[in-house]
Design a protein around this nucleic acid. Sequence first.
DNA 1: CATGAATGAGACTTCATTCAT
DNA 2: AATGAATGAAGTCTCATTCAT
Lengths: 190, 190, 190, 190
Amino acid sequence: MAKPTGIAKAELLTAAKQCLVHNGIEKFTLKAVAEQAGVTQGTIYYHFKTKEQILLEIIQSICEDSWSELSVASKEFIQIALQSAKSRYENNVFYHKLYFTLIVIGFNNPSIKQQIADILKSENESLFKALTKLWEKSPIEGVSLESWSIFFNALMDGLALQVMVLEDFPIDQFYEELEKIVITLYQLGK
Amino acid sequence: MAKPTGIAKAELLTAAKQCLVHNGIEKFTLKAVAEQAGVTQGTIYYHFKTKEQILLEIIQSICEDSWSELSVASKEFIQIALQSAKSRYENNVFYHKLYFTLIVIGFNNPSIKQQIADILKSENESLFKALTKLWEKSPIEGVSLESWSIFFNALMDGLALQVMVLEDFPIDQFYEELEKIVITLYQLGK
Amino acid sequence: MAKPTGIAKAELLTAAKQCLVHNGIEKFTLKAVAEQAGVTQGTIYYHFKTKEQILLEIIQSICEDSWSELSVASKEFIQIALQSAKSRYENNVFYHKLYFTLIVIGFNNPSIKQQIADILKSENESLFKALTKLWEKSPIEGVSLESWSIFFNALMDGLALQVMVLEDFPIDQFYEELEKIVITLYQLGK
Amino acid sequence: MAKPTGIAKAELLTAAKQCLVHNGIEKFTLKAVAEQAGVTQGTIYYHFKTKEQILLEIIQSICEDSWSELSVASKEFIQIALQSAKSRYENNVFYHKLYFTLIVIGFNNPSIKQQIADILKSENESLFKALTKLWEKSPIEGVSLESWSIFFNALMDGLALQVMVLEDFPIDQFYEELEKIVITLYQLGK
DNA sequence: CATGAATGAGACTTCATTCAT
DNA sequence: AATGAATGAAGTCTCATTCAT
């Protein structure tokens, strides 16, 4: 006895994400979500109390995705990067557009901001664990592994941004170069 | 040819920026801009053809700011970073909120996206020039100075993001650590 | 023929009355009624054909209450007044809010208006019977006992109105004074 | 230079009152008001912040009417009654429907309730002044003139109610009888 | 230059009602 | 007998835009 409600809601959320990414915040309308999901606007309100609630549940679902994605990533750091590159940058401009859109919405929406903050922190922590396994200790004195993980996370986000804005951004090349940097730093630390 | 209108227009643009940052995209209303500027909505239409035109002119003004800011920055790279830190992160969360907001708007607005792309490119170039002066050559073989500049620019943006989302982000500490990294890499390259 | 449904229906009606009084006409929603009754909206439609049907049945139930209440009241007039005061004004602001609400709904709803009219008339008649027993004849020539009964009924309603609107209305005091008036008038008529 | 705005707003209020009376609370929609006034719904929102604001301003205008109406009425009490009868009951079922509708809305709306309370109190006071001139002292010991004025006000409202609900209510006849009562009571007091 | 008034399209939201289960 | 899901019409409200003054 599968829960039809749960499925329906998940489908609505998926439709909402697609709308948010394809139409942009300004055109993120409930009518558009309804059409995308193939239901009426009333149906949306049967499942979500308000429009903001949809945004919140979108983030929550991202949050869960993010957690699972990153918790798996306790192998080698470079693999994380490449894996991220593949799963998030190359294929998933979608994911990052959604992510940045929600960040910007969060600027003026405390609840959403909080959730984004949680995601960021958990990403930083995941990267920290990965770095610990990879490097054991920081290659540069005075720069903690925590800081390195924050830097790498920031770098990922910053690169994602350039990918999204610059049409012909050669992300693959940059990941190869990043790999070299990580390796060189590792050897520096020994 | 005195330009009294130009002045008024600049004030409207300032008001518009404040609205965009303080109200967020969703509540970026011409009524709000008018109130912020202390004029009526009609007045705005005397100066701007449409709402989108305001956004475009906002971005153009940022563009000019960005150029001037970065063209000055042809001294030492670390100083750039610290200067950026001071002028943009610490004091200017405002600037970065505006910047990221426009990026996200750009996701679904080609004209704005183009301008954002131009800004990004010119920032990359400015950083490249600065790095050239600072490092002369790349500290790691196989990683071009162009790539380093892109990495640093991405890092800046990514850190800015964390500053804006995480309330208690110790940005100062990170800049000190970044300085150490830059210096270490420099010595590595000699 | 047990009527389990009948009981359920009565409960729904009670819930509906509470909603109508506590939420007001404007928020008199089937969803609210359903929640109040602890059932789903669908259940309401099992028992009532439409929303208006609920209102009609509410009024019918009041009608029955009213009749029984007043038919008992064939003793002394003053006792009626005091009894009314106790059962309707002091404790039963609820009853009067419901009553006035339905009157106002009746302004634009012929079926309801008709029922309200019936209630009013039967109240007038009951008061007339009571007055007949109490006074035998009118204390003032040219003013029929029918008129007196209408006046007293109007007075009751008007006082109820003031009770409901004025927070600190000393209804008890007024009933004592009313009693004096009734007695004085009675002696006047002898 | 007449104020066109003021006039426009007054016209909107008039239209709103007509809607409220002719359509009833349940159908008191902004669309209806707009159509009645011959403007678009947007226009209404240019003049009134919300729908509730319209109701509040309706009451305020009634309040002003009521004050002026009653302050004039410092002549003879019976004339007040007749005058009221003429201006309010016979011709102005409209006025009373509006009045009772607002009272019922006030049951669940504190701001409106407060204004209704103010109106009631000022009516009571006006009647008290009129009674003082007419009777000088109370015809029945133990019943203050204040109480008499409240009773007469309640009586007026209660009769108005019967007029509105009972199609063939002979209000004229009742006013004549009321006049006899007032006169008889007056002589009783001498 | 600037404004106040007005507009109409479209946003979010509510709600009576229906229906398969 | 009851329910949960869905609907679509309609309601309140917002907003970019226009225009006479």
